[in-house]
Design a protein around this nucleic acid. Sequence first.
DNA 1: ACATTAAGTGATT
DNA 2: AATCACTTAATGT
Length: 214
Amino acid sequence: MAKDIHQSQFAGLFEPKLLEEIEAVSVYQKKKAGTEMIQMGEEIRNMPLIVKGVVKISRLDEEGRELLLYYVNAHESCAMTFTCCMQGKISEIHAVAEEDVEFFSVPIKFMDIWMGKYPSWKAFVMRTIQARFEELLQTIDQVAFQKLDDRLVKYLAEKSKVTGSSLLNLSHEQVARELGSSRVVVSRLLKKLENSEKLLLYRNQIKILAPFES
DNA sequence: ACATTAAGTGATT
DNA sequence: AATCACTTAATGT
């Protein structure tokens, strides 16, 4: 498909010289849905510029429980990767391809080089970090104030946006794990939402009805 | 028909 | 909001 970066969404984002450099130094890669892309504790050597698909970024605790941090969509890159690799640190996060993913893989050394060389690159990096930072502040608020119901609604909205479908194939247990909660609680909250006509519940499936607002 | 797994519910902390 | 204990419903063999 769009193996040419000049035809990707990055074409409008970066100046032509930078596009050429990306093309020269990057490797175009594809990963199937469900593939692990970065493990916690792994050293980061490349940064991905996503062309297609969605990558799920999460943290895992000692017991293997998962806390969803955010999704990386097409024409974005991972903020954690930027912050990690600026100091050659290891990854604090876990990345899995949510859908089939295609991306340009760029060695991290260009991170620094391009920062000084290309204003558009600097702006891109700053934007993605800033956007993520704000989002993380939001979720910290929510966690601190224990508003799981809001988080659940946001989670479902995001899931359906990412999937492009209002019918989500999820068990209550999966949802609970990603939100760091328990199945029982999630079931109850979902039931509430069903009663208020926001969605329909089936076995392993959730159908979103309303134009979902928190 | 039976076992397994997902979801619903009341009570308790 | 979390956990427990238990029920009910759906699905697979």
